[in-house]
Write a protein that binds this DNA or RNA. Structure first.
Lengths: 198, 198
DNA sequence: CTACTACTATGACGGCCGTCATGACCGGTG
DNA sequence: CACCGGTCATGACGGCCGTCATAGTAGTAG
């Protein structure tokens, strides 16, 4: 949330992600990004000669890395090392934000996919890579929690997909119920995948 | 897909949904809608005096009703009356489209949520209503399949959320794998909810 | 000092957008 | 016939957008 950290370039990438996840890619103007990042407008063309496309792609990549790092930190700090606890923590990040800050924004990767998957190939690839990064982090966490290797990828996809969908519904409803519901319903299935021999 | 059916007004609503689910709300121009619907541009202001906002909201509502009707028809024609079969059928609608027509479009309700949830209150409400309609239809179907009443709503939310997220990932990856994965992984959990006394 | 690079500033351009104003068409009714 | 309401057609307006051109300002190396 703090804007003043780091250089202006990183601030602009961060601000782009913020604006994209709020109103979608097309509604996030370059001028808005500069203002939000408290960066000079002229710096946009200097740091991002590839234009808006480059800025959006970097914002999506940043979001993917952020989500992956977050998962890695979650799994290291779980009170109970169970897959359901990891998923609950991933969901809680969103319920916390929605309860305290309001339902302003969704997932920037989802927004980029919706707005650019068909029109801008490079952005679709960036979104795919972001999902892959995120999913890889979740799969590794599941492995550390005792899920057999051959199931970690599938369950990671299930967790991320379910989370993304619940975010959508929660934002439409302005109600975190969808998030808490999927966390509660999916938990037992995830824990059931833990190798009992572990 | 056929454009010539029905009156120009319905065609425009249908075309709006098509364009929205392809490129997002902001990228779907009013002129594009008229062209896609093979309708005169002048008719837009006649049938939709509320402007683009009204058109988008009606498109979202149409999508919600369409999805709900679809579920009702699915459940009546299931070879095996199990919740997992219903979910598999809901997923198959998307894998079929992606395999035959390509990954052009996602869910219009998701697109409207991403692009308008924060900026246009009425559209957010329309999206929420669409999810509610859809979810209600799924919940009723689950009840008919033997799921206890107190769990139908939660499982319907889980199914729709998971499907929406998987659509996102599949479109980003240009690969139906996410869809087939969630169908396979979620199936057992859904069937386990069937009242064994039924 | 000069020269050069990195960064900042600002105005303009062309394009697309949603909306509106205006008027034509056309079937039916009086 | 005149009239009129539903429908279609078209051009214009103002606004925002991404991009570009141009010029300015450090700060630093030679």
């Amino acid at each position: 949330m703090t804007v003043s950290e780091r250089g202006p370039r990183e601030r602009m990438v961060f601000s782009a992600a913020q604006l994209i996840r709020r109103d979608g890619v097309s509604s996030a103007g370059m001028r808005d990004v500069a203002v939000h990042a408290q960066a000079p407008r002229g710096s946009l063309q200097h740091y991002f000669p590839g234009g808006k496309e480059q800025l959006v792609n970097e914002a999506v990549g940043w979001a993917g890395r952020y989500a992956g790092d977050r998962v890695a930190r979650f799994v290291a700090a779980l009170p109970e090392p169970k897959p359901s606890a990891l998923f609950a923590e991933m969901v809680r990040q969103w319920t916390d934000e929605y309860r305290t800050t309001g339902f302003e924004g969704g997932c920037p990767v989802a927004a980029a996919t919706v707005d650019c998957a068909e029109s801008t190939e490079s952005t679709r690839e960036a979104a795919s890579a972001a999902f892959t990064t995120w999913s890889g982090s979740v799969a590794q966490a599941l492995a550390e929690l005792g899920v057999p290797e051959e199931r970690t990828e599938a369950l990671a996809t299930l967790m991320i997909g379910t989370l993304e969908g619940a975010i959508l519904i929660a934002r439409a409803d302005r109600d975190v119920r969808a998030l808490t519901t999927v966390s509660r319903e999916l938990g037992p299935l995830l824990d059931a995948a833990v190798d009992s021999a572990g």
